[in-house]
Structure formats: C-alpha cells, structure tokens
Design a protein around this nucleic acid. Structure first.
Lengths: 211, 211
DNA sequence: GGGTGTGAAGCCGTTCACAGCA
DNA sequence: TGCTGTGAACGGCTTCACACCC
C-alpha cells in the first residue's frame, strides 16, 4: 500500500485546497473543479483518488469532508510526527516562523546548532539545543524527521549525526548531495537547483508552464 | 534543443560538485565518480552529458573545467538574469541572505512588499520596493524571474501582478497553487508538500532512499 | 581491461477512450 | 446527460546490454 511519489505530493496539495473549500462552506467537489484549482487534468485527480481507494457515492462529486479524512488517514500519523531543525541560522529560523500557526500533524519539536551563542535561545517557542545533544533529544522527544538547514560545509556531518541519532526522514535544504542509508528517506529541497531550472526554461522561452 | 527537465536539474547539481572538485585540484572525473557523489548511476550521468553534446576525448574521464564551461553555456544567460523577491517577510529575507556570496549568473536585483514599514529598507544590499512599482522596476532593471514569498492570501494577486509586469519565470514558495499563462514557466517550491512527502514515506517505513 | 556512448527495453506516471452509473 | 472509475495506449526518464575505443 505504498502510493506513487507524485500522488503523495498531490494529495498534500489537494488537502489544503479542500480545507479551504470547507471553510467557504462547500460540501462537495467535482474532479474537474479540483483539477482546475491545481492546473491539472480531471483524470489525474480521479486517478489519484482511485489510488487511495475512495469513491464518491453520489454523483454530486466527492464529499469534501470525507475526502479530507481519507487523505489524513493516509498522510498523517495517528499522534503526529516530530520534526527537528538542524541549523538555526537565518534559514532555519525562517522555516520555524513559516510553520507557526500551521496546525498540522507535523510538529517542529526542537532546533539544533553548534553556535554556543544560539544554543538555549527560542524562536517562536522552539528551543535551540546543542548539536552534541542531538541523539539524546531525538530519543527523548521521539523525533523521526530532520530538516537540514546548516551551512553547506556542515551538511555532511550534520546528516551523519542525524542518521546516527535514529532520524528516518530528511528534508535537505542545502545544495550539497547527501549520503544516507537505504532505510532513511531523503528528499531534496534545493533552492538553487529549482531557480536554475526556472532560469533555463525562461532563457529558452519555454512554451509550457509545467507544474 | 530543449533538455529534459530532470536533466536540467541534475546539470545544476553536477556543476556545483564539479566546481568543488576544481577547488580541490582535480582536473578529470569519471562518470562513476560523479555518479557516486550524487547517489545516482554512472549511466545516468553519461546520458545527461550525452544530452548536452559533450564528450571526453581522452579516456581519463571528463575534463572538469570543460564540462563546467559547457554546462554554463547551457544553463546561464550571457549577461546573467535578474531575479525579484516578492514578499520581504522572514522567508523573503532568509532567501536573500541565502544568496549572499553565491557568485552566480542569477542576481537578486530587487525585493518588493506592500508593507510601508518595510519598503525602502535594505536586506544585505537588496532594496525593498513598493509592490505598486513592480512593473516599473521590473522593466527598468530587466527582471525576468520572480520568487513568490508573500503570505498565502496575497499569492494570487502578487502572481497576477508579476505576470502583468512581464515576468517570465516564477518560483512559488507558497503553498497556494498558482495560475499563470502558457508562456510563463512555473516551478513549485513548497516546503509543506515536501515535508508531508517525507512524513508519509517515513510512516510507511519506506525502504528506498529516493533522490 | 576499464572506461565511454547509445540503441533498445523497461518502468513510472499521465492521458485517452470508453463503459457504467445516477 | 454528466460525471466517475479504469483498462489500455502513450510519453518521458532510467536502466540494461553491448559495441567501441584507448
């Protein structure tokens, strides 16, 4: 029961849109409506929903609340998942700010740094610990996911420490390729690469807007 | 002569690695070495290099300097490309900081915001303008790319303004799906989606580390 | 032998085309 | 008739397998 990677990404996006629809008082939505909101095809939406095994009983479209529940059952862990920020510089702090208020099953539980002047401070309620205590805090707090926001030259070391501490998923904000064991899921999140892609396709005055 | 999207992304990554290799005094590199540094296969590297029409004349592997030059010729614009930041909050400022010192053909030329208390300030040398002046500044400075770092509720409007001002490529940091015309290239850069993907695959204790 | 370049096969994700249901 | 669910076709990207070259 492992979904295609792309589908997982879209489910996350659908959910946010659906929650907005609920707020606006909508109760049902057609596949082509949801598709239009995401600039994709209706077939794509139906295919994704097929994957998660949900189906609309009435022909009034999908029941938004139920669909949100089903997606939640798939994406979320029962009791939430704890996330650590490795690197509490500008980027790390911006990430923490970004998450503030976003009610979610993903909880930023702790930040880490090697800079003694930062250790012990709090950023909107998230405390910064010493990287040396990573393993201890990760175990105590049950943290399974890390975001790597350290400077490039520290990325490899921080990652090794994270893996060592028992982290099972990594979101890599740095532009450094990381090495992780098979059983750790690694997702790249590299601004430079993304921006250079945009620049390339702009330069070549690409005709498609690719999602 | 339009390369596959994935290849473009990897070329950007290869180049950074290759530049590091140069610094370390290396002059040649085998496909399997470059592959290992990126956790991909040697065939993949060779295929990408095939696409860009470069080939190693000697059997000592690829000439790193030449390869960097060829990649540059493909990815970079002759005179650089100017980039605007729309939204000068925590995220926008962190992005600006992140780019400081990264010598590159991509130059953050201007920041924009609607908040009068931010307009006129500078973040590490990048001046913040009034969103109302977007079109004027974009034209004056020859800006072709925008990063959307505004709060979600302003994303749609800011994007419309950007498109209107003549922006040809957008990197969307918000979690809101954007609508752009066919001739504007749009790349999503959504932290929440990426993190939820990691969370999903961690939860399902996925065995693969996918790059 | 140890590397590269590449046709062909395979895989994954998307789209087509259409049957089925209210 | 209008929408959903889905087998089958398609297309893009990756990998296999192998010819070729120093």
């Amino acid at each position: 029961m492992n979904l295609p990677e792309k589908t997982v990404g879209r489910l996350s996006e659908y959910r946010r849109t659906l929650l907005n629809c609920l707020v606006e008082g909508k109760t049902h939505i057609y596949s082509h409506e949801l598709a239009q909101l995401h600039n994709i095809t209706a077939v794509q939406v139906r295919r994704d929903i097929m994957f998660i095994g949900y189906s609309s009983m009435q022909r009034k479209g999908y029941d938004i609340q139920e669909l949100v529940n089903v997606i939640g059952k798939i994406l979320d862990s029962q009791d939430g998942q704890n996330v650590a920020i490795l690197g509490t510089g500008n980027l790390g702090r911006a990430v923490i700010h970004y998450f503030v208020g976003k009610r979610s099953k993903l909880i930023i539980t702790a930040a880490f740094d090697v800079d003694k002047s930062i250790i012990g401070t709090e950023t909107t309620g998230v405390k910064c610990y010493d990287m040396a205590d990573l393993e201890k805090v990760v175990k105590e707090r049950g943290i399974s996911i890390a975001m790597i926001t350290v400077p490039p030259e520290q990325a490899a070391k921080a990652t090794a420490q994270a893996v060592n501490a028992g982290i099972k998923g990594i979101l890599n904000f740095t532009s450094i390729p990381l090495n992780v064991p098979e059983n750790v899921y690694l997702e790249e999140y590299d601004m430079i690469t993304s921006l250079e892609k945009v620049a390339y396709f702009v330069k070549n005055s690409q005709k498609k807007s690719v999602k």
